[in-house]
């Protein structure tokens, strides 16, 4: 079983959107996948996954022994092999203990899960630390924007010092850069950091680029992970991300912008 944390430091960059789409993508490939919301007190993964009305028990209930893990796991309505463990909406963050989280993860392993995707909260507090503690791999979600890049750099430092792998001196957490809300046009115009700039700054391998798109809001409006919105660039970009994560070679898409020619701009389109 592999544990993948989706993290960023900064809020609002697309962690939950990515967790939902990525976990769904792994499940679509036939892997038994669990996605866990670590944002205790401000859960949102349930809404993005469209299962908010089916939440009975949550992660904290399981940690505190009030419910069994099997009772709290919600089966996804789109993909059979996907299960969601929602965060608690009310309880205290201190309920997230290392021992508790480790126990849940071990139980998921005995249940035969192939992947556990940990949706980290923003910030570098307890919830975020617990989400990355057991990670084997990390997807660092970054917007082409200064504060997001800086926060991603911070979170990389934390992955390299506070994860179990780091603390036990094992092989380090495998890091992946995912650039989201990307506008090839604005990059072309020199108004936005390019994915190459970001990669040069953060120095980790690029997993993918998700274009800025109306489809993301459309997906969250309906509670459908963006990867299911057939024919949209976002869905295809996320599908590519899953393929690359699984070791397949997929060229980057949605990263170039065709400038209208000078003649076109002077005389209108021909």
């Amino acid at each position: 079983m592999r544990i993948v944390v989706v993290t960023s430091g900064k809020g609002g960059v697309g962690k939950t959107t990515t967790s939902a789409a990525f976990a769904s993508g792994l499940a679509l490939r036939g892997f038994k996948t669990a996605v866990i919301d670590f944002d205790v007190g401000l859960r949102n993964l349930d809404l993005i996954m469209g299962c908010e009305r089916r939440v009975v028990y949550d992660f904290v209930n399981v940690l505190q022994g009030d419910a069994k893990l099997t009772q709290a796991l919600i089966k996804d309505k789109h993909v059979d092999t996907l299960h969601i463990l929602p965060a608690s909406q009310t309880k205290d963050k201190d309920a997230l203990t290392e021992e508790g989280v480790e126990k849940v993860i071990k139980e998921l392993e005995t249940m035969g899960f192939d992947y556990v995707v940990c949706d980290s909260p923003a910030g570098i507090e307890r919830g975020a630390l617990m989400a990355l503690l057991f990670a084997d791999e990390a997807i660092v979600v970054t917007n082409p924007e200064v504060s997001s890049v800086r926060d991603s750099d911070r979170i990389l430092g934390i992955l390299q010092s506070k994860s179990r792998r780091a603390m036990e001196g094992r092989e380090p957490v495998k890091e992946h850069l995912l650039v989201t809300r990307y506008s090839a046009k604005r990059v072309e115009e020199g108004e936005m950091l390019s994915y190459k700039d970001i990669q040069e700054l953060l120095r980790i391998p690029l997993l993918g680029v998700i274009p800025e798109s109306d489809a993301v809001l459309q997906a969250s409006n309906q509670g459908v992970p963006a990867i299911h919105l057939k024919g949209t660039d976002v869905a295809e970009a996320y599908a590519d991300v899953v393929s690359r994560f699984l070791g397949e070679d997929k060229p980057l898409r949605f990263v170039s912008y065709e400038k209208p020619s000078l003649i076109k701009r002077l005389f209108g389109s021909t």
């Binding site: 890049v149 800086r150 750099d153 911070r154 990059v187 020199g190 108004e191 936005m192 700039d197 700054l201």
Partner: peptide, 17 residues
């Protein structure tokens, strides 16, 4: 271009941090 300014600022601050 502002993107170039952003990159320069990030290079400095990340190195310092």
């Amino acid at each position: 271009k502002t993107a170039a300014i952003a990159k320069e600022r990030l290079q400095l601050i990340i190195a310092r941090e």
